[in-house]
Every structure is written in structure tokens, then in C-alpha cells.
Amino acid sequence: MADMMQFDLVSPERRVASYKASAVSIPGTEGNMTAMPNHAPLITTLRPGVLHVEGEKGAEEYIVTGGFAQITPEGISVLAEESYHRNEMSQEILDRMLETAAERQRKAVEASHNEPGPADDAAKLMADMVAMGTHIGLSPKQSNL
């Protein structure tokens, strides 16, 4: 492949991926974006979603629950709160993620007393988690939410 950049994805527990890539699609909190070699320097926050990477061995997908991405002309480093290769994801992992998000939302609603702010942020987090699960073909178990 012609133009390549270094792609690194880490979570607090482990290094999830590290290899050369030609493009990385990122679920940013301000919207999706794609980083490519020689991209202008940028740091962005992530929302729950799917990182799509075009790399040395073809296309790969990684699930992230949030974090940061640092983009430089030489590459991209993603520091994820939690991350899994698409093939590692399971219904049990998604259920745990959704329960954590639901608990966070319940606490934010209790703390905010229906004022705008944290409750709205928590509702968006929950919606992003459900969309992420649906995107990869896993059920968000709507009835439990």
C-alpha cells in the first residue's frame, strides 16, 4: 500500500492493535471523521462506536466506548476507555456496557432533578451504546432499559 501511517489502539487493560493503516474512521463526539496519512494534527474525544481501519491486512473493526484520539501526520493513537476487536464482542459484553450506561444515566437523572446537562449527556451516551450494538448486529435488549 502506498501511503501508510501508524495506527495504535490501547485501553487501560491492554494494547488492542498496532499496525500500519491507510485510513481510520473515528466515532468522534462531534461527528464521524476519517484520518489518513499526513492528516493535520488534531485531538478529539470519542463517543461509543465502531473504529473502522483500512490496514495492511485489509479492513478491521474495533468497538470503543469513549476516550481520545490523537492524530498526527505520521499516525493515529486511540486511547479508549474500553475497546474490543469486532470479533471479540459478544452479547454479554454489550449487555454489561449497556447496564453500566443505564446506571450512569439513572444517577445523572437523580442528580440533575430534570435540569439540562448531565442527564442529557447520559441519554446521548445510552443512545450511542444502543446504536453501536445495533450497527454490529447485537441486540440492545430495549425492554431492560
Rank of each mutant, 00 (worst) to 15 (best):
P140C: 07
Q70D: 09
E54Q: 12
I93L: 15
E60L: 03
I136E: 12
D128A: 04
E30S: 03
G66S: 10
M5N: 12
G28P: 01
Y84D: 15
F68T: 10
T134V: 13
M132T: 13
R106F: 12
A69R: 00
M5H: 08
V64M: 04
A101T: 10
H39I: 10
I43H: 02
V24G: 01
G58K: 10
V50F: 01
E56M: 09
S22C: 04
A111T: 14
F68H: 03
E110F: 00
M33N: 01
M97Y: 05
D8W: 00
G75Q: 09
G137F: 00
L46K: 00
A122K: 02
E61Y: 00
V78E: 05
E56D: 13
R14N: 09
M5W: 06
I43N: 06
I26V: 07
S18Y: 03
E115G: 04
Q70M: 03
S77A: 11
H39L: 10
L145M: 14
S11N: 11
T65M: 07
T100V: 11
V16P: 05
V130F: 04
P116T: 07
V53R: 07
S11Y: 06
R47F: 05
I76L: 11
A122P: 08
G67I: 05
T45I: 13
E60M: 05
H52M: 09
N38W: 04
E92K: 04
D3R: 01
I76Q: 05
I43T: 14
I43E: 12
P48Q: 11
E103P: 03
I63Q: 07
M1A: 11
L9A: 07
M36C: 08
S83E: 12
T65S: 11
E60D: 12
V78A: 04
V10A: 12
A21R: 01
N38A: 13
R104D: 15
T65H: 02
I71A: 02
S143Q: 08
G137P: 03
R47P: 08
I93D: 15
Q6T: 15
G58Y: 05
I93M: 14
E82K: 03
E115M: 08
T72Q: 04
L145F: 09
E92H: 03
D121Y: 05
P12A: 09
G66W: 02
P116W: 02
A2P: 10
A69Y: 00
E30V: 00
T72R: 00
K20E: 10
E61C: 04
L98M: 14
R14M: 09
K141N: 15
